[in-house]
Computed example of a mutant assay.
Amino acid sequence: MSSLPTKSRQWVLANHPEGLPTYGQSDSAFNLKTVDLPSLQDGQILVQTLYLSNDPAQRGWISPPSQIDPKRLYVPPVKLGDPMRARGLAKVLASKANDYAEGDIIQGTVNWVEYAVVDVKDPMVGVRKIQDLPGGLSITHYLGALGSTGLTAYYGFVEVVGAKKGERVVVSGAAGATGSMVIQIAKHIVGASYVVGIAGSDEKCRWVESLGADKCLNYKSKDFEQELKEACGEGVDVYFDNVGGQILDYMLANMSRYGRIAACGAITGYNGEAALPMKNYFNVINYLDRAVETVGKLIGALKEGKIKIGEENETVVDTKFEDVPKTWLRLFEGSNQGKLVTKYV
């Protein structure tokens, strides 16, 4: 790059959305603005955003304070006027920080911006230089299967809910970023005896079964409730819930005695449209304290052939900067298979 950028466009939170967020209008949740970049100081790097992670949890970060107590979120909410928060991958354009050089690719909280000056030691940014992945896999998997969603899948299933070998498992949102990893971890790493996935189309169900599910059910089927009851048999030991709503209600009637439920997400209700809305869902706190160790386990499982990671595990969308919110909103349409990733073009 012949000259370094001095300005950056960014999508900022303009209003707390009550329902489905909108963008680009005066009363929208997100507005586009251009800002001056600060000069580079010691310990900082100038980066250009390449890819963005799209996650349902982002919806909770922008909800009105009257709906969610900010103290109950595992990260602070996005403040009005601040760029929309998002994890991503970025290229270092200039550096005044030790161990970082021009051309390095970093992972961190880069937000919905084109360029940014970041402090490499800021814990809220969480900058980490990434390495090439085995088998020529795309680095975008650091945002999905080998990123926060893969960590959530492993930690939530193995550490939090304590899944054990030989147990019967059901996973909702099984064709999504987290659910597709839970399916593989359950069957091929933990050794569950019977794994049922739930997804939104017959095509997605066949893919979920190719990952290791013994059965996958299309929740759009007119006979879904009965099909689910039959699939659960005498009861399920572990239910990994990514969707909440009616499916969670069905599963409560199909758990075995002393069965456990991992409350990972409730995407059907994040914009207020759930059949069984819960006002306090975001009071369920998640946490990770062994992220590096867990990623190492997942890469090890990948090398051993226990889990599959490839193009099918992600939906990468070429996106103009003006359409960044539009791509994120695809999360709530259920159109993606695996991780939904924004690629700047």
Rank of each mutant, 00 (worst) to 15 (best):
R85D: 10
W328C: 07
P64V: 08
L143V: 12
N54T: 11
Y51C: 05
H16R: 15
R59T: 11
R330V: 02
N271V: 12
K164W: 12
K279R: 13
K96R: 15
K343M: 13
D132A: 14
V171C: 03
G156D: 09
T149C: 10
N111L: 12
A177W: 02
L40Q: 08
A90G: 15
H16P: 10
G144L: 05
T315H: 06
K164Y: 08
G334F: 06
P134K: 04
G150A: 11
A14D: 13
M124I: 06
G269T: 05
V158W: 02
I62H: 09
K129Y: 11
T140P: 08
N54E: 01
T34G: 05
Q25D: 13
R330Y: 04
V120C: 13
H16Y: 15
L20P: 03
K187A: 00
A86M: 11
K7A: 14
G24F: 09
S3W: 01
P21V: 11
L37W: 14
I105M: 07
V92E: 04
G108R: 03
V113W: 00
F157E: 02
W328I: 05
V243R: 03
D323V: 03
G147I: 13
T6H: 09
G166F: 10
K91A: 06
N111S: 15
D119G: 07
E102K: 15
V170Y: 00
R85V: 13
G166I: 10
R128M: 10
F332H: 04
E225V: 14
T178V: 14
D122G: 11
H141D: 07
I261G: 05
K215I: 05
L211I: 00
N31F: 03
A94R: 07
L80A: 08
H16Q: 15
V169Q: 04
D55V: 07
A266I: 00
M278H: 07
Y100L: 08
I309N: 03
G305W: 04
I299V: 14
D237G: 05
G200Q: 02
G126V: 09
G162Y: 06
H16T: 12
Y155A: 11
V182H: 01
S193P: 12
V238A: 05
Y155W: 06
V12G: 04
E312Q: 05
Y154F: 14
K79W: 02
H141L: 03
Q337H: 09
L276G: 02
E203P: 02
L331W: 00
V161H: 10
A266C: 01
E311V: 14
G235Q: 08
H188I: 00
F224R: 01
K320I: 08
V158K: 14
E293M: 08
V195A: 02
E230T: 07
V127A: 14
E304L: 10
K343T: 09
V317L: 09
G103L: 09
E333A: 02
M181H: 11
I267V: 13
Q10P: 14
Y142M: 13
K164I: 09
L217T: 00
L340W: 04
S193A: 15
N31K: 13
A153M: 04
A174T: 03
G305P: 01
N54Q: 10
